[in-house]
Structures are given as C-alpha cells and as structure tokens.
C-alpha cells in the first residue's frame, strides 16, 4: 500500500522535475530540479531494497556531481536565460514521443522469465550493504579497480583542463585589465 503510494508520488515528481530540467531556459532552475529529481530517484532505490545504491546515489550524484556542476556554473554566466535556436521543434517532439512510445511498449511487453536465473542471488537475513560488498570485492574486483583508475584519470584530466591559466579572469573586468596593461607598459 505505502509502496504503491510512494512509487506513484516519486514517479510523478521525478518526471515533473526532469521535464523542468529539460525544458527550462534558466541554468539555475534546471540544475536545482535535476538535484531534486536525483534525490527522488534515490527514493526509488530505497523502495527497491537497494539501500547501499540509494546512499551512493545521494552521496555521489547529489553531493559530488551537483556540487561540481554548481562550481562549474560559477565560471559561466548563469544569471541570464539561455537563448536557444531550435530549427525544428516539431520534429524533436515527434521523435522523442515515438521513442518514448516504442520504449514503453517494449518494456511493458510480457517478459517470459523461465530461463532467467539469478547469477549472484541476494541472501536472506544479510543486509544489502554486506551483500553488495561481498559480490563487489569477489566477483567484480577487477572492474572495481579499473573504475578506481578511471576516476583517477578523470581527476587528473579535470585538474589539467580546468586548472590551466586559472590566474586569468574569465569574466573580463576591463578596468582591471587596463590597469594590468598600463603596468606592463610602464615596465
């Protein structure tokens, strides 16, 4: 009963928030609604019994990724609304609607599940985090290490890409620039 109410509430709110994300003209509104939608998606994970995944979603997506976006937004001029030239909006709506329809029909089709068996079944009486840890550090150890190396590579590339010429101002403050130029001329 509560699961049903929570499912419909979360799905309606998530779809509404993500529609705002996709159709809003303001970066701040889009980012805020994206963060709220991700919190609600972690709610889905908690309903589904994937506690550890929900916590990771909250920490990584809402905590880290949205913080990264909001820091990056300070580099861009985010106060003005974005003007986008849409060449053919009707085509996009038709394509998006058709793909939505086909995906929903595909997933709503009955799935014959006699041949599907659990490869790493969940254990009764064991917490989700414990179960995840056992499978992650035995069967998926090499992908886990590769993901760690990938995150390291991403961190280094992020530092190199964004950190170069960090001392130069992005938003041009012309009077300060002129002062610097005058100082250089004097030298």
């Amino acid at each position: 009963m509560y699961e049903t109410i929570a499912f419909y509430l979360f799905s309606a709110l998530t779809i509404g928030l993500f529609l705002i994300t996709v159709f809003s003209k303001n970066v701040l509104y889009a980012m805020t609604s994206l963060a709220a939608g991700m919190v609600l998606i972690s709610g889905f994970f908690f309903i589904l019994g994937a506690d550890f995944l929900g916590v990771v979603q909250l920490i990584v997506y809402v905590g880290a990724i949205m913080a990264l976006y909001s820091f990056a937004m300070m580099f861009f001029d985010s106060t003005k609304s974005i003007k986008e030239k849409n060449t053919n909006p009707a085509l996009i709506f038709v394509l998006g609607g058709l793909s939505a329809l086909s995906l929903v029909l595909m997933f709503a089709a009955p799935i014959y599940n006699e041949s599907i068996q659990a490869l790493y079944p969940m254990h009764e009486g064991v917490g989700n985090a414990q179960d995840v840890g056992i499978v992650l550090f035995t069967k998926y150890l090499i992908p886990f290490e590769v993901a760690a190396v990938m995150l390291l590579v991403a961190m280094i590339s992020g530092i190199i890409l964004a950190g170069k010429k960090m001392d130069q101002s992005l938003t041009k403050d012309t009077c300060v620039d002129d002062e610097i130029l005058i100082k250089k001329d004097v030298k």
Partner: peptide, 14 residues
Amino acid sequence: ALIFSIGLMGVLRR
C-alpha cells in the same frame, strides 16, 4: 523508459 525518453528529448533539443 519515460525518464530516458525525457533525457533523449533534451539531448535532441538542447
């Protein structure tokens, strides 16, 4: 599927 289609529509129109 619905949320994925919303994202796809965003990728197409943004």
